[in-house]
Amino acid sequence: MDNRLLKTMVQLLLPFIQLYGVFIILHGHITPGGGFSGGAILGASLILYGLTFGHQETEAIFPEKVSAWAESGGAMMYVLLGLFGLIFGASFLSNLTAGFAAGTPGQILSGGFIPLLMIAIGIKVGSTLMTLFSALIEGEPS
């Protein structure tokens, strides 16, 4: 597929889509949306790139190895954040009682560890969507 119009438009749009995805992830604790929705937008942007530029090009900018690390890393970060609470004498997945700062409600820096969880979920969902897409392209269930 070699459509110049399509490629140019995707190149123009991609930064904005990804910026929007990151915005949704980072504002997950104070507005509707969050890690899953933002991660889905990020993943969709990668899929859009993959559809326009083909599998090889995508593999060059977002290699499978990076994807695997992002996938496992995102989920591991979630579990480790959960265990953090146990270390500090609270329950599993405790938020404020485990010593995370509460901040001012309504500001970006608030909500204890919810923003960190959102980032973990965003990374996981974005890379997983990309992996699922390439798995479908190659027809490899796993």
């Binding site: 699922l132 798995a135 479908l136 027809g139 269930p141």
Partner: peptide
């Protein structure tokens, strides 16, 4: 996704 991959 899993079902689609199996279907392919």
């Amino acid at each position: 996704v899993y079902a689609l991959a199996l279907m392919i």
